[in-house]
Design a protein around this nucleic acid. Structure first.
Lengths: 155, 155
DNA sequence: CGGAATTCGTACCGAAACGGTCCTGTTTAT
DNA sequence: ATAAACAGGACCGTTTCGGTACGAATTCCG
């Protein structure tokens, strides 16, 4: 349904939480508690973000996670593609070139157009913009955004 | 991964095929043969599109399907929301109002921004624009676009 | 130097959605 | 009346997603 996954949603909540407190570093249990998200998922998501270079991880006894860059430097494009792969509405967009139907398939260019529009919209929004001045108080159960039971009429 | 479903992909192929021959009407087996798509899926998809008002169906022995409106009047937004529900990247967008986290959730406005950009991009493209002058020759096996085995690096 | 805390990596499982098929009406032209 | 075609389900296998668990590697602190 053109939805982001729940994990991506989690990731964004975590990142905004981190961005709201640039000085501190957080470990997984802290973040889970303060965002109200399930710890195992938080853990999993943080690892992914760290591997993708969005977070700096610090191992050992007083370890934790912190933003690898300034929140203003992180675009939503990067966040989303870190968490769920390249942004490509159709498969034919990221296989880049060897689409067997290229000759006959007239829609590809238009898909690229649509895809580009999406990506540009995502590029224009930085993590800092997604982060409010200083909301995201501890203990608040955020989220449950991502995919779900939508069954409304048509938009 | 922010992908459209395969059925949506099929639907677009079918619609462009119909748009390329506005005079004729097609029945399901014909369309399946001429697009190279599996008949049961074609049938299912056509029914959906008819129910959503994009196609006009004609029952009975010489029945078939035709576009319900001019191809220039049909936007991609309508096609996609007919086939996979309202366009909403996050759940909180189409539940429209009663998001329990509205107070604390800072990201909602930004999601709406992103969503709006996507929808506008989709609104700007009509079915006629997706349809080539007169390609889509009979018997050509189009498609296999939709979702799939993408595993490229990051965009 | 050794132990404890913490992240890292990976393997695993259940549930839901997706892709695809089939069957039983209902309608309509011949 | 009969055959062709749409309408509307129910149904199933496979994949993906959401979530869990466990062992290994790393680093701080006593």
């Amino acid at each position: 349904m053109i939805r982001i996954t729940k994990q991506t949603d989690y990731g964004i909540v975590l990142l905004t939480h981190l961005a709201a407190h640039p000085e501190r570093t957080f470990n997984a249990p802290e973040l889970a508690a303060e965002t109200g998200l399930p710890l195992p998922m938080v853990s999993k998501t943080l690892k992914l973000l760290a591997r993708e270079g969005l977070l700096a991880s610090h191992r050992g006894v007083r370890g934790g996670y912190g933003l690898a860059q300034a929140a203003t430097e992180i675009t939503m494009t990067r966040v989303i593609s870190a968490l769920e792969g390249p942004i490509a509405i159709t498969e034919c967009i990221d296989i880049s070139g060897d689409c067997a139907h290229e000759r006959i398939c007239p829609t590809r260019n238009n898909w690229q157009r649509i895809n580009r529009a999406l990506k540009e919209a995502l590029d224009r929004i930085s993590l800092a913009e997604m982060t409010p001045p200083s909301r995201t108080e501890p203990g608040a159960g955020l989220v449950q955004l991502g995919r779900g039971t939508s069954a409304a009429p048509a938009a």
